[in-house]
């Protein structure tokens, strides 16, 4: 599968995750969100950028429990809870946000 943006092709896997992390740019995230009928706000970007930094440091996509805890620590308790994160990413914060961030599917997600 692939994603077409402004004439450029981005290779994805069968679930729509980006094949090559290094292909990622903000347009990729916007396009993926658009296909899910999701408008990316600053709050979304906060989580997407956090995930990219997390992957850069640890080379893994965090499990949702780990993501929630880490977001709470970095961005405050009002954001570090699953209700807030599910509002932003109704398909599952780890799954959906990781996809927009160009990361592989989180380890342990089926």
């Amino acid at each position: 599968m692939a994603l077409e943006i402004n004439g450029k092709t981005y290779e994805t896997d069968e679930e729509g995750y980006l094949a090559n992390l290094s292909d990622w740019d903000e347009e990729v995230a916007r396009k993926m969100a658009e296909l899910d009928d999701c408008d990316l706000t600053d709050n979304h970007w906060e989580v997407i950028n956090f995930l990219r930094e997390y992957y850069e440091e640890y080379q893994i996509a965090p499990a949702v429990r780990v993501l929630t805890k880490a977001i709470g620590k970095k961005l405050g308790k009002d954001k570090g809870n699953s209700k807030y994160l599910y509002q932003l990413f109704p398909y599952g914060p780890a799954k959906q946000a990781c996809k927009y961030a160009g990361l592989p599917k989180p380890t342990g997600c089926v």
Partner: peptide, 14 residues
């Protein structure tokens, strides 16, 4: 090959 050693640093989070 992928260097997966940074992932051991995440074990504490888990």
């Amino acid at each position: 090959m992928k260097n997966f050693s940074p992932a051991y640093k995440a074990l504490g989070d888990y």
